[in-house]
Design a protein around this nucleic acid. Structure first.
Lengths: 115, 115
DNA sequence: GGAATATATGAACAGTTGTTCATATGAAGA
DNA sequence: TCTTCATATGAACAACTGTTCATATATTCC
C-alpha cells in the first residue's frame, strides 16, 4: 500500500496535506452531530423561520416538552440557537443565518441525489 | 403553554410553518451524521484536497485500513465520496465541492464562536 | 493456478445517544 | 406565601455507533 506517495508525504506537516487541528475537528464533529437528528433538524428549521417558545416548539416538532428541552440544550451548547426569557416562557431562535445555510446546503445535496 | 399561537397554527399545513417532509429530514440527519465524527471529517478534508487510495488515506487520518474502509462505506452510502478502482487500489475523492463547502461553513461557525 | 497485496465485510463488544419518567427550578398571580 | 404554569435537569434504559479481529473478495504477478 501507500502507492502514489511516500508515508512521510502524508504525515509530515508542510508537505502535502495539512489538516485542521484535532480540537477544532472535535468541535466540528459535535456541531454536525447536533444536526444529525431528525427532531433537532425540525427544530432548527422551525427556529430559522420564527422565534418560538419551548411549548410551541414541542407542538411544532411533535415531541414532549422534556425531550424538546433536552434537544434545545444540545443546540444551545453548540451555539446553534439563542434564547431569551419573557415571563414564564423562554423563546428560542436560530443563532444566525449561518446555521440555516448549513441546513439549506445539505438539503440541496440530499435533493440533487435523486436524479 | 402555546402562548403566542394557537395549536392549529403550528400543526396545520399552509398556515405558518411548513417543514421539510420526514423522509428528507431523515436523509438530511444521516448526512449530517456522516460528518459527525472526527475521523470521517479528517477523511473528508483530505479527500477534498486530493484523490487518495484507502491505504494512503488510512495513513493520513491515522486509522487501521479496516476502520478506514468502514468509514468510507458510510461516506459512500450517502454519496459524500466517489471512488474508482485502479488495479489493486481503490481511489476515493469528494463527490463534489458542495461537501467541502458544508465543511467550510461549519468550520467558520466553529471558529467564530471563539471571539 | 497459487501467492501476495489492497480493500471490503461481518460479528462482537464498549461507548455514546435519545427518550421517558420523576423531580427541580423559576416566574406570575392569588 | 402557596399554587400554578413553563421550562430544565437527572437517572435509567434501549437503541445506535465506532472500533477491532477474523475472514472474504478482488487484482496482479509469478
Amino acid at each position: 500500500m501507500v502507492t502514489t506517495l511516500e508515508r512521510e508525504d502524508l504525515v509530515e506537516p508542510g508537505r502535502h496535506l495539512v489538516l485542521t487541528d484535532a480540537e477544532t475537528m472535535n468541535r466540528l464533529a459535535e456541531t454536525f452531530g447536533a444536526l444529525a437528528d431528525p427532531a433537532r433538524l425540525r427544530m432548527v428549521e422551525a427556529l430559522s423561520k420564527r422565534e418560538l417558545c419551548v411549548g410551541d416548539l414541542s407542538v411544532t416538532v411533535g415531541l414532549s416538552a422534556s425531550a424538546t428541552s433536552h434537544h434545545l440544550r444540545t443546540l444551545r451548547n453548540l451555539r446553534l440557537v439563542k434564547h431569551r426569557r419573557d415571563g414564564k416562557s423562554v423563546f428560542y431562535l436560530l443563532d444566525d443565518m449561518h446555521i440555516r445555510s448549513l441546513f439549506d446546503q445539505a438539503l440541496e445535496h440530499v435533493l440533487e441525489e435523486r436524479s
